[in-house]
Design a protein around this nucleic acid. Structure first.
Lengths: 145, 145
DNA sequence: ATAAAACTTAAAGCATACTCTAAGTCAAGG
DNA sequence: CCTTGACTTAGAGTATGCTTTAAGTTTTAT
């Protein structure tokens, strides 16, 4: 089976070697093998774990809780339910995140439309801070429907 | 027009009063009025701005760049294009974020399915760390199609 | 009238997640 | 042989975004 140096893994995962060593130091990368010269050799399973780690991290699970998940994994079958719960919780979190991003997309689209219209108008000082915020104020406090 | 105390605003925005004062100190809340006793009174426009601030922040724009946007706003018409660019950039970022979250949703669903199947099986030690990661390794390195 | 809650300031402290430094080892190319 | 570059360790330093403290003032409810 292929193995990978820390530099290879850094490139593959889009992180720095510092980050990978930091993760190992924090117990987030268990059992990374080292060759006779003491250099780390990452297995494909290690990369698979990094992939899950990245997924959990980028959906907002703190490193501390990722470590907790890892400890559950070590304990085998009896922690299955708790481990599945973690993923179910992340799934819910993810759904909220996607909705929040969509809401933000609407706000950003409102802003872009406002700027486009203002540029079209060519009106002077339409875009002073006051006018700009007044449009937002109305959007929030005087919604049309 | 209604005004709001710092505590009111904190509740409305779901942040602490510490955070609001911190934002003001950092120049992210310009021109907050104070009453004769020196207490902050937030206007609806201030809330409108906080709403935009929250939108930019939660889509990953650092506070430093949010401050920059604010400074552009103060300079009026001549910064319109740059300001619109900021929102267009955030829109692109947001599209990537939504896609990334959807990708993560797939990974999480894979995990959940794996755990469900393993629980059904009732097989002992199916869920040891090794087996668990082996499934991930195959997903990554031996995709079916 | 007075006690509790909410506010004021300036400045220090903290959590998270890296990021870098120092001093040294090791393997490969010219 | 020797330099270059990737690696090793332990530990210090940094960036971001808050969060709290301390000491005092103001507002609000009883």
């Amino acid at each position: 089976m292929n193995t990978y140096s820390i530099g290879d893994v850094a490139k593959l995962m889009g992180v720095t070697t510092y980050t990978l060593r930091y993760y190992e130091k924090e117990g987030l990368l268990p059992n990374i093998r080292k060759n006779s010269a003491g250099l780390r050799r990452f297995s494909e399973q290690d990369l698979a774990w990094l992939n899950i780690l990245e997924c959990l991290k980028s959906t907002g699970l703190p490193l501390k809780e990722i470590k907790h998940y890892l400890e559950l994994s070590k304990d085998g079958d009896k922690t299955v339910k708790e481990r599945m719960e973690i993923f179910l919780t992340q799934k819910k979190r993810l759904e909220r995140q996607i909705q929040a991003l969509k809401d933000n997309m609407e706000k950003i689209n409102f802003k872009i439309k406002y700027y486009e219209a203002a540029i079209q108008d060519g009106e002077k000082n339409v875009l002073s801070k006051h006018r700009d915020l007044e449009a937002e104020r109305k959007r929030l406090f005087e919604p049309k429907k």
